[in-house]
Computed example of a mutant assay.
Amino acid sequence: MITGSTGSANMVRLAERRVFSPSFKPLYDEGMGLVEEAAEYLDGEGRLAAKGLPRTVAGLYAAESMRLTTRLMQLASWLLLQRAANSGEMTREQVAVEKAKVRLDTASAQEDAPGWEELPAAFRDLVRRSLRLEALVRRMDREIYGADGEGGIAGDAAHNPVSDQITLLETAFGRG
């Protein structure tokens, strides 16, 4: 029996079951695979494609690639924390404290933004997939930990985001 944030002792929370069971592996693999795919694209084919873009579109590409990278780092941090809890390396309470530093609300340019359709199709696909994954993880996070409850989703804006990411990664890999 799993108790939910609604207070119902009989409520089964599917997101919690998924994250804290072997069925988490496909989600983890998808997220980490997307991180690797985006890194390879941005460092290779994407870098070449960006050089041929008109100036205004190149600016949009640069801004959106930063957002994409940030979004994927946040997702990777969340996934690593959940994996640590799933494998018993961290308690759920430890994860809740650490995940308070994770932001799952990275903005993105709208698809109707000027120049969006001129961006490389592979890049637009990576952005869309990252946004879809972020939305899924955000829903799961809210179901498991509650919105703005202990550790909230957005984290504390006063923290240094780079330092927070380093701390999260060190914790997830057991070096913290």
Rank of each mutant, 00 (worst) to 15 (best):
Ala107Phe: 14
Arg55Pro: 05
Gln74Arg: 05
Arg83Cys: 00
Val102Thr: 11
Leu104Ile: 10
Leu136Asn: 13
Leu126Trp: 14
Ala84Gln: 02
Glu134Trp: 09
Ala107Trp: 15
Leu75Glu: 09
Met73Asn: 13
Asp112Thr: 08
Leu48Phe: 15
Ser130Gly: 12
Val137Cys: 05
Leu131Thr: 12
Ala76Gly: 13
Asn86Lys: 05
Thr56Val: 10
Leu133Tyr: 14
Asp105Tyr: 05
Thr69Leu: 08
Leu119Ile: 08
Leu81His: 03
Leu68Trp: 14
Ala122Val: 02
Ala49Ile: 00
Ala84Thr: 03
Ala100His: 05
Ala96Cys: 09
Thr69His: 13
Arg71Phe: 08
Trp78Ala: 01
Ala84Pro: 02
Lys101Pro: 08
Leu79Arg: 12
Pro54Val: 02
Gly59Gln: 12
Ala121Phe: 00
Ser108Val: 12
Met90Gly: 02
Thr70Pro: 07
Leu81Met: 05
Pro114Tyr: 00
Val102Tyr: 10
Ala58Glu: 11
Gly88Ile: 01
Leu119Arg: 11
Arg47Cys: 11
Met66Trp: 15
Leu119Met: 04
Ser65His: 14
Gln74Glu: 09
Gly59Pro: 04
Thr91Ser: 04
Thr106His: 10
Thr56Cys: 02
Ala121Arg: 00
Leu42Met: 09
Met66Pro: 11
Gly115Arg: 11
Pro114Glu: 04
